[in-house]
């Protein structure tokens, strides 16, 4: 790696950190310093470099990429590193991916794979809002449905058993499930009781049409749990028509209607 030798020579530092980051931000405590070595990474302080060194650094970065290496934005690298680790430690998620790899459209598979990573982050109680938005931006409402269904375990606990019991049943239902998610309503903060009620009625209709024997209403967080409970109270007649179970634990609610 010729570019790396040039970089070390330019700053006369030993590469004893796993990561080198280029940043403008220097802060008052770093006046006059060309780089800061925290042990975990070396931050090269671009604005503190002479014009000549800035230009030499730019040429080195160009050479790095031209030699075949990637040059990544810092946060993107952080996510990429996690995704590489995800690829190596898929565990049970690999079984899901292997199962669906040749069964579902390529884009759905990509959405599923991204959703499995999202689910892992969710289970670690880390923020997933940007990841969810990324899936939705790329794959639209279908991607959003796949993400919700995956996080709630529908791929393992509904679609896989369905395929194993009836390939024809799977072929008939899969597209409806991921495009409309009729048997699982995922309540979010922007949904009011009226919309939930509408979605439930639509879900009941579609589920019955395709022989799906249940409807689930999912909610996460106190606000969504309260909204769902208000919805149940205000639609007593509708809900009392079906056998109903309510599972509530750790800020998650699932209302199950047996059809």
């Amino acid at each position: 790696m010729a570019w790396l030798d040039k970089l070390k020579a330019l700053f006369n530092f030993e590469l004893n950190a796993p990561l080198i980051n280029i940043t403008k931000n220097s802060g008052n405590s770093n006046l006059g310093k060309e780089y800061v070595n925290s042990g975990e990474k070396i931050d090269i302080l671009f604005d503190n470099l002479s014009k000549e060194k800035q230009e030499k650094l730019k040429l080195i970065l160009k050479e790095k990429v031209e030699e075949g290496s990637k040059l990544l934005e810092e946060k993107s690298f952080g996510l990429l590193r996690e995704l590489i680790n995800f690829q190596r430690t898929k565990g049970e998620d690999k079984k899901v991916l292997d199962f669906f790899q040749n069964l579902i459209p390529k884009e759905d598979f990509e959405a599923l794979e991204s959703s499995l990573y999202l689910r892992r982050r969710f289970q670690e109680k880390r923020d997933v809002s940007k990841l969810k938005e990324d899936i939705r931006t790329r794959f639209g409402d279908r991607g959003k449905n796949i993400s919700n269904l995956c996080t709630a375990g529908y791929f393992e606990n509904f679609l896989m058993p369905l395929f194993n019991s009836s390939k024809e049943g799977f072929d008939n239902i899969y597209n409806v499930v991921v495009s409309r998610s009729p048997m699982a309503i995922f309540v979010h903060s922007a949904m009011g009781e009226d919309q939930i009620t509408r979605d439930i009625k639509t879900g009941l209709e579609v589920s019955k049409k395709y022989g799906i024997k249940f409807l689930h209403i999912h909610g996460i967080g106190d606000q969504n749990i309260r909204t769902i409970k208000r919805c149940i109270y205000e639609n007593k007649e509708l809900f009392n028509y079906y056998d109903k179970e309510i599972f509530e634990n750790n800020g998650i609610i699932i209302v199950e209607l047996i059809l």
């Binding site: 790696m1 790396l4 970089l7 590469l15 796993p18 990561l19 080198i20 980051n21 280029i22 940043t23 403008k24 931000n25 671009f46 800035q54 730019k58 040429l59 970065l61 160009k62 790095k64 990429v65 290496s69 990637k70 040059l71 990544l72 934005e73 810092e74 946060k75 690298f77 590193r81 590489i84």
Partner: peptide, 23 residues
């Protein structure tokens, strides 16, 4: 190092400088 590659990154503050490098 990741996959044998020495990692160099940049943060948001130098995006424009990085883009300039590549025309």
């Amino acid at each position: 190092m990741v996959n044998g590659e020495c990692i160099v990154t940049f943060d948001d503050s130098v995006c424009m400088e990085v883009l300039d490098v590549f025309g």
